[in-house]
Computed example of a mutant assay.
Amino acid sequence: MATKTWKIEKDLCRCCHAEGTFDNLAEPRTFLEKEEVYSDMLRECLDLDIPPVPGELCAITYSICNACITRLRDACNFKKQVQDCEQRFMTLYYKNAIQGLNTETVVKEELEVSIDDNHSDDDIETIVLKKEEDDDDDSFMDRDDDDDDMSEDFAITKKPTTSMKTRSKPKAKPKAPPVKKEKPQPQPKKKAEPKPVKEKKDDVNEEYALTVEADGTQTFTCRVCDKSFNQRKYVHQHHRQVHLKLRPKLRGCHLCDVKVPTHQRTYHMEEVHGLPAPSCGACGKRFAFPWLVLRHQKFHHMGESKYRCEPCNLTFIGRSKYMHHQTKHADVKAFKCAICDKEFKWRSGLKTHMLIHNNIRRHVCKICQDAFVQQSSLKYHVLKKHPEMV
């Protein structure tokens, strides 16, 4: 079966595969005095992430046509409209500011009947029977000729004092007050049964042995092959890849038989086969993945960042660097000296402080041979005792 070849002559819309002269998905555009980045709009509104491809196809295939821009803009506006309306509705609902319109019940007026004392009991029965017959008529309140049907000898008049009443009509029910949402009262917590404590394996101690020198230097020695490292992450990586055989997965090259790690594939394609790695068009810096190029451009060239420190107004490209910076503003000192209980924010500060307890003076004055623990102490000594050397 012959494979089909897709030849692209102009820009390609990644949303509908139309060809023409279109806008780049990552470049900001202005519409009605508002800045739009179409890749961000696709991600925020439709949860779609369209990555650019490396190489010569990157520029011509990372674009969007005007028709898709219009539909995307309508989708974003509709999503914002629904969110705003729902937020306003729920705000009014919880404030009991929404009331339903109940249809009013029409109540017929009670007719008061007074009878003269001169009439006999038979006449009174006649009037009562006549009144009951009128009540059976549904349009009793709408009739104008009720008095004409009665005998002229008996007159029905309305007086403020009631001597006899007809049967009462149902009264309108008062409107029910708005129901307030009552918060469920917290139920008393049941005493949780103690769970059996699981024994935790000390994986770190199984991998390496820690040795702390007198000057505070730490050495991590592999327990299997006695190889030493100066950082914990290196001995952990060594143990996983060498002894546990958990090496990183290799990705095969489709142009040759070489297999390389995923993060080195783009550099292999550039050095061996001449295919350029994803790079920044502004400064030429190369990256392993296209998404790193976009992050680099947004932070370094466009000034965009999600992580900004309010006290000092510094921006950071990632969350890890931002959280590390926040330690400077925090009052928490996590590193404590076991001898004098002095606390430090940074591990390096505790390491330098331990040199004082161990009386390790590594910084020696070249003139008078006086030794000091810290480099700053040596500089101060030279400035005061040997100002001619400054």
Rank of each mutant, 00 (worst) to 15 (best):
S376Y: 08
E388S: 08
K158Y: 15
M269A: 00
P160D: 08
H300V: 14
A338F: 13
M389L: 11
G284K: 01
K173F: 06
R143E: 10
E19W: 13
H353E: 03
M269P: 01
V107D: 06
L314C: 10
H239T: 04
H17L: 15
E56S: 06
T3E: 13
L111F: 09
K198S: 12
K201E: 02
G284M: 01
H238Q: 07
A176V: 08
P278S: 04
S120I: 07
R71W: 06
K200I: 04
M269E: 01
T157I: 12
D146H: 13
D47K: 14
N358V: 05
D331C: 05
K366L: 09
K95Q: 12
Q218P: 07
A155F: 15
S377V: 02
E125N: 11
C283G: 08
I60R: 11
K169T: 05
T70M: 05
D117M: 09
M389P: 03
T157F: 10
P174E: 12
D144V: 15
F316G: 05
S305K: 06
Q369D: 14
T30E: 10
F335K: 14
T352P: 02
F299V: 03
F316Y: 13
Y380E: 15
I367D: 09
F89Q: 01
T161N: 10
F287K: 00
S348V: 11
C222W: 12
D149V: 14
L210G: 09
Q187C: 02
V106Q: 12
E125D: 09
K183F: 08
L32Q: 14
L46N: 04
C76N: 00
K379M: 09
L294I: 10
F154A: 03
M41D: 00
Q374C: 03
R43T: 04
C16P: 10
K200M: 03
V235I: 11
L46G: 00
N24A: 15
K10I: 04
D147Y: 15
R223Q: 14
K80A: 04
E104A: 13
C256M: 13
C337R: 03
R14Q: 13
F344Q: 04
K191S: 06
P311G: 07
C76M: 01
L250R: 06
D23K: 13
K227V: 11
F220I: 06
H301T: 07
D121F: 13
H325D: 07
R143D: 09
H363L: 03
E271G: 07
Q231I: 12
H239V: 03
